[in-house]
Computed example of a mutant assay.
Amino acid sequence: MSAAPLLQVEHLSKSYGGVHAVQDVSFSLVPGEMLAMIGPNGAGKSTCFNMVGGQIPAGSGRVRIDGRDVSGLSPRQIWRLGVGRTFQVAQVFKSMTVRENVQAVFASRESGWGFLARAGSAHRTEAEAVLHLIGMADFADRPCADMAYGDVKRLELAMALANDPKLLLMDEPAAGMAPLERVELMGLTARIAKERQIGVLFTEHDMDVVFAHADRMMVLNRGRLIAEGRPEDVRQDTQVRAVYLGEGLVYDQAAAARRASA
């Protein structure tokens, strides 16, 4: 028996004047599933993604998490329901250590906007457990300002996981990372998602990342959902191939395997 949907997006639309950024988009996501949202530039991915997370109010339609309608809730209210978020440009506190960044998330869950005052003193054990989960325990005392960007992206994932999410939203998680770092980060994310039954919705331009880690994928073009399904099926869709002509949708599996093992 298939799992009940964790995330349900129903007839989501958003317009800016006469421009239809997102038009009647519906999809669902179950626990433990990696769902990729792809499309050419201007397809409406960011608008749709940010409506799910509450950063942009929907023009029409509904977003449901665990059956609850979250339409109109603020990003923080949605976060408190168990939704983690990472960004295309990693969002961390550079003046803090790695451990303190994760402690800040735990403190924020308890004390709201007063969390920074308690970031370095509370939840040390919990923070270290999360860092161990993602292989960053040895980095705990390192200042974020001294870290390579790939490690900063891993830290941002740790901060998202500190919220104990049931749903994880990842906006271009591989952006700005070296090829091997991309493979490692998304492999780690996929493993944790399966182990903890976290649903993951992610946008991504790197087709190697998408085809290697997505259980399903959906393709937007000019605000509309034009294809959805398993990566191997979507790759063969004639409309998708036409939209992506010249943009790298044709996936070289052998080449990707060589890069992953390099």
Rank of each mutant, 00 (worst) to 15 (best):
M1P: 12
S2Q: 13
S2A: 08
A3S: 15
A3G: 10
P5C: 09
L6V: 12
L12W: 03
V19E: 06
V19T: 11
A21G: 00
V22T: 01
Q23T: 10
Q23F: 02
S26K: 06
S26F: 05
V30W: 04
E33L: 03
M34L: 11
A36V: 09
M37R: 01
I38D: 03
N41M: 14
F49N: 00
N50Q: 08
I56H: 10
P57R: 14
A58S: 11
V63D: 02
G67D: 13
G67K: 01
R68E: 15
D69Q: 07
L73G: 09
S74I: 12
Q77Y: 10
W79E: 14
G82T: 04
G84M: 09
T86D: 14
F87V: 10
F87W: 07
Q88W: 01
M96I: 09
T97N: 08
V98I: 12
N101W: 09
N101V: 11
A104S: 15
R109V: 09
E110D: 14
G112W: 00
R118L: 09
S121G: 07
V130T: 11
V130H: 02
V130N: 05
H132M: 09
H132L: 10
L133V: 01
G135C: 11
G135W: 08
A137T: 12
D138W: 01
R142W: 00
A148I: 09
A148V: 10
G150M: 07
G150F: 01
D151K: 01
R154D: 04
A158P: 03
A160W: 05
L161R: 02
A162H: 00
L168Q: 05
L168G: 03
M170E: 03
M177F: 07
P179D: 03
V183P: 07
E184P: 05
E184A: 11
L188Y: 01
A193D: 06
R196M: 12
Q197N: 14
Q197D: 14
Q197E: 14
G199S: 07
L201P: 00
T203L: 07
E204G: 00
D208F: 02
A212Q: 13
M218G: 05
L220T: 12
R222L: 13
I226W: 01
G229T: 08
R235Y: 06
D237W: 03
V243S: 04
G246C: 08
L249Q: 10
V250S: 14
V250I: 14
Q253D: 15
Q253L: 13
A255S: 15
A260D: 13
S261Q: 14
S261L: 13
